[in-house]
């Protein structure tokens, strides 16, 4: 039997993009159904490898997925060669995608439980499908509390969706920013995301925490949550690492014995405790 080359990607088309912040865009990307190189269903928290031929490939999370329309969304900050090349490609242009890979958010374990989301900056991108999944299957989950921090108000992603998130029954959205530029109207918190912790109403028992953001933020957030009585096995983090393959071969994403691409990118804190090069 001829083996499938795992590095071949599926040709997809950019259907449109929306500006989220000065350097972050959400791209809608249409994909061919039934592809082996881009397999559905996606699970929230998994990632995909996106490439522009001749420029290179990089890992991204997807921020929404609609199998009926065969479109997924990915929210990308323009910071390097591949992300700049994606941004320069307009509507109708092709990009190459393979995946999804890895272990996503614990949507099964979270059934019937309260969910506390802690996001920092671009870290909200992989959590957006969680919020949508809870909204679509409202009775399957308990309370939904979302804590979201960013550098400034204009760095908050999906701001146009905040009202609809607030209107999810039993949902709470708490926002904070590091600083507010003069002249910007801001009715929410100022400070790092952990300054919102004394407002958390989610009880540590029978709840799941899902967290994504800069590792320094996650380090302090985990510390705070543990102090509040959340259990290490109920606190899930999505990690960023260099990834060149997505299939546990290139070795870049290793943390101790774990491959972030295969064993993660979402891990319960209990699996990460005591491993090297982490949460620094």
């Amino acid at each position: 039997m001829r083996l499938e080359n795992p590095y071949l990607a599926e040709e997809c088309v950019i259907k449109g993009s929306r500006r989220q912040t000065p350097d972050v865009y959400t791209y809608a990307i249409s994909y061919p159904r039934g592809s082996r190189r881009l397999r559905t269903p996606f699970m929230p928290g998994q990632f995909i490898m996106i490439s522009v031929l001749g420029i290179g490939e990089a890992p991204f999370s997807f921020s929404a997925w609609d199998d009926e329309k065969a479109i997924f969304e990915t929210t990308i900050r323009t910071v390097g060669n591949v992300t700049s090349a994606i941004m320069r490609r307009g509507e109708g242009q092709r990009i190459w995608v393979r995946g999804p890979y890895g272990r996503g958010w614990p949507m099964e374990e979270a059934r019937g439980k309260d969910i506390l989301i802690v996001a920092g900056g671009i870290g909200m991108a992989p959590l957006r499908p969680v919020i949508e999944m809870v909204a679509r299957n409202r009775r399957s989950y308990g309370g939904l509390e979302i804590l979201y921090g960013a550098k400034t108000p204009e760095d908050l992603l999906f701001a146009d969706e905040f009202d609809s998130w607030r209107s999810i029954p039993g949902a709470e959205l708490l926002l904070t920013v590091d600083s507010v530029p003069r002249g910007t109207k801001w009715d929410h918190g100022v400070g790092v995301v952990t300054t919102l912790f004394d407002k958390i109403r989610t009880e540590p028992n029978d709840s799941i925490v899902m967290m994504c953001g800069p590792e320094i933020m996650m380090k302090f957030a985990v510390k705070g949550l543990l102090a509040m009585g959340f259990r290490p096995e109920d606190i899930y983090l999505s990690l960023e690492r260099r990834m060149e393959c997505g299939v546990a071969q290139c070795g870049h994403c290793q943390i101790g014995p774990k491959f972030v691409c295969k064993d993660g990118p979402v891990f319960p804190y209990s699996e990460l405790r005591g491993l090297p090069d982490l949460l620094a």
Partner: peptide, 26 residues
């Protein structure tokens, strides 16, 4: 040791290229 990098290289006059892997080191 099995680690590698994945890179793209374009051939002149930039209408074709290769994606290749190359040894890397932690």
């Amino acid at each position: 040791c099995f680690c590698f990098d994945v890179r793209d290289k374009l051939d002149f006059p930039m209408d074709s290229g290769v994606r290749y892997k190359e040894w890397d080191a932690c």
